[in-house]
Amino acid sequence: MEFRIERRSGVPTYLQIVAQTKQALRLGALQPGDRLPTAKDVVSRTAVNPNTVLKAYRELEREGLVEPRPGLGTFVLRSLARPGSEVDAQLRTDLEQWMRRATAAGLEHEDIDALVADVRDRHFRRDGRDG
């Protein structure tokens, strides 16, 4: 996998690496047993400080997602892909219908993002959970 670092995003670089790894775990692009790219691999593609990569990997390790094996690399322990794929498929269909209505109503990319983010945040706040 390859990380894409956005320098001006305001999100700390190590958190970008953590988030992108989790995204790959969610989508199944990374599976248990897969090896994460070495710090050297990541650094030679992104020019990010090697300690930043290691910090991200330590965070993933702390969350129980990966495990370092000395001399071999860092390996994925568990996936974040959820099993309920039928439920997911129905939700996706619903969302696609909603998205068609939103674009038909003239909403732009950013309008949709803002709306979705707002509803999501209100929902999670009401449930007393944190996102």
């Binding site: 710090a39 050297k40 650094v43 030679s44 992104t46 020019a47 990010v48 400080n49 090697p50 990569v53």
Partner: peptide, 14 residues
């Protein structure tokens, strides 16, 4: 600039 920095950091990482 990016290539020089990436080489430098990759070697430092190793």
């Amino acid at each position: 600039r990016k290539q020089v920095m990436a080489t430098l950091l990759a070697e430092a990482a190793e």
